[in-house]
């Protein structure tokens, strides 16, 4: 008996090792779903908590990708919305089914601004979409907030955009509600503001009125947000208002944009050519 105890004492560590190893192997081999769930419901709160924090942190690193996905989704929905609008117009006019132009007369192509220039008189942007994505010169560019500018040149993969904040760009705009047309231009000073010109003095405009695109140009669809009137100045010697517009697009934090592709532009231009 004593020798047995001595033997046990001598090999106690080995026995303990074997016991622990056997226990763990039994656990590993015999873990039924029930045991597993019992084990993990008691222990899960800590690991679950740790993993939720880790996921919260790693989510931040995926934000960029998520954002791009959302923008693609926005472009897709804009296209769908546009098609539905056309269908509704067709239905309201009681056109026969074949004459409803629900096909896309306008398409929105999602792009990303990769270079911004906002502190010069002749600013430009570079976007990461080019001719192979269907982007060509003279297409309008909008952001989630408002209009951005007009594509001036494209190569295969990139396009140069003349933004609203370029002194050489004039965009036909209207005061929302009254539908009076003016021309938006930039004075080269502050990238947050532009001026609306050619608005006759008899037209009543107030600070706070919304300025949107007129739809008279082929670049932009009608009613795209441009900005809000900041102040209206009228001098007796001038036939026009001096309207200062706070631009809706923030050019200091511009990233995701949509390029408006007008699919009916060639038809429109060809019919206009005939009378020239």
């Amino acid at each position: 008996m004593r020798s047995l105890l001595q033997l046990l004492a001598r090999y106690s560590i080995l026995l303990m090792f074997l016991a622990l190893e056997t226990l763990s192997l039994i656990l590993a081999v015999k873990n039924s779903e029930y045991q597993r769930s019992r084990f993990f419901t008691s222990a899960n709160s800590i690991s679950g908590w740790t993993y939720s924090i880790a996921t919260n942190i790693s989510d931040y690193f995926h934000l960029k990708g998520e954002n791009e996905k959302l923008n693609e989704e926005v472009a897709r929905l804009q296209n769908e919305n546009n098609a539905l609008k056309n269908t509704i117009i067709g239905l309201q006019e009681n056109k026969p089914q074949d004459y409803i132009y629900s096909d896309l007369d306008k398409e929105f192509i999602n792009g990303k601004v990769i270079n911004v220039n906002k502190n010069k008189a002749h600013n430009y942007l570079t976007i990461n979409k080019g001719t192979r994505d269907g982007v060509n010169a003279d297409m309008g560019v909008i952001s989630g907030n408002g209009i951005v500018g007009i594509v001036s040149a494209s190569n295969e993969r990139f396009s140069i955009v003349i933004p609203v904040i370029n002194t050489s760009l004039h965009i036909s705009c209207k005061v929302k509600g009254s539908n009076h047309i003016g021309s938006l231009s930039w004075d080269g000073k502050d990238y947050r503001y532009a001026n609306l010109e050619d608005l006759a003095k008899h037209i009543v405009v107030n600070a706070g009125d919304t300025i949107a695109t007129s739809g008279y140009t082929t670049n932009f669809p009608e009613d795209m947000l441009v900005g809000v009137i900041e102040e209206v100045k009228t001098s007796p010697s001038d036939a026009y208002h001096k309207v200062r517009v706070r631009l809706a697009t923030d050019f200091s934090s511009l990233s995701q944009v949509s390029i408006v592709k007008n699919n009916t532009i060639e038809e429109q231009l060809s019919i206009e050519q005939t009378i020239k």
Binding site: L20, E21, L23, S24, L25, I26, L27, A28, V29, N31, Q35, R36, F39, F40, A43, N44, I46, S47, T50
Partner: peptide, 12 residues
């Protein structure tokens, strides 16, 4: 094992 959703694997 708790973190890896296994039982006995890391323990052994």
């Amino acid at each position: 094992d708790v973190f890896c959703s296994s039982i006995g694997v890391h323990m052994s």
